[in-house]
């Protein structure tokens, strides 16, 4: 799946992978790849501006912590981020239901 198709959804995907536990940038990329079955085809460097934007928007908190003996910036979902994720999930379910209903099966 190309980056263009993800436009508007990348933020929610990032919020979803840090929902259960705080993760640093590389671990977020790994989690996205694992949960998408390797189908996400986007330059991994694009995630860092998105992480910074989500943090400034109040959806993520970040802190420098030790991961595997190294200092890494770790991101954690905020309560506002949790609410935004829940809202996006609901919108996505509605969208998917509508589109599936119209497209039907071949």
């Amino acid at each position: 799946m190309k980056a263009d198709a993800l436009r508007g959804h990348l933020d929610s995907l990032i919020l979803a992978v840090v929902e259960k536990q705080p993760l640093h940038g590389y671990a977020i990329i790994e989690a996205l790849n694992a949960r998408s079955g390797g189908e996400l085809d986007l330059p991994t460097g694009t995630i860092y501006p998105a992480l910074r934007r989500l943090e400034k928007a109040g959806y993520l908190h970040s802190s420098w912590s030790e991961v595997g003996g190294r200092k890494r910036r770790t991101y954690e979902l905020s309560s506002a981020g949790r609410n935004a994720l829940a809202a996006h999930r609901q919108e996505w379910r509605t969208f998917a239901k509508v589109v599936s209903g119209v497209l039907g099966e071949a």
Binding site: T44, T46, Y48, P49, A50
Partner: peptide, 16 residues
């Protein structure tokens, strides 16, 4: 290669 070329990545970083 995975991270992306400077041309692809720099605009997002510049925005930030």
């Amino acid at each position: 290669r995975d991270f992306g070329s400077v041309d692809d990545i720099a605009p997002g970083f510049r925005d930030t």
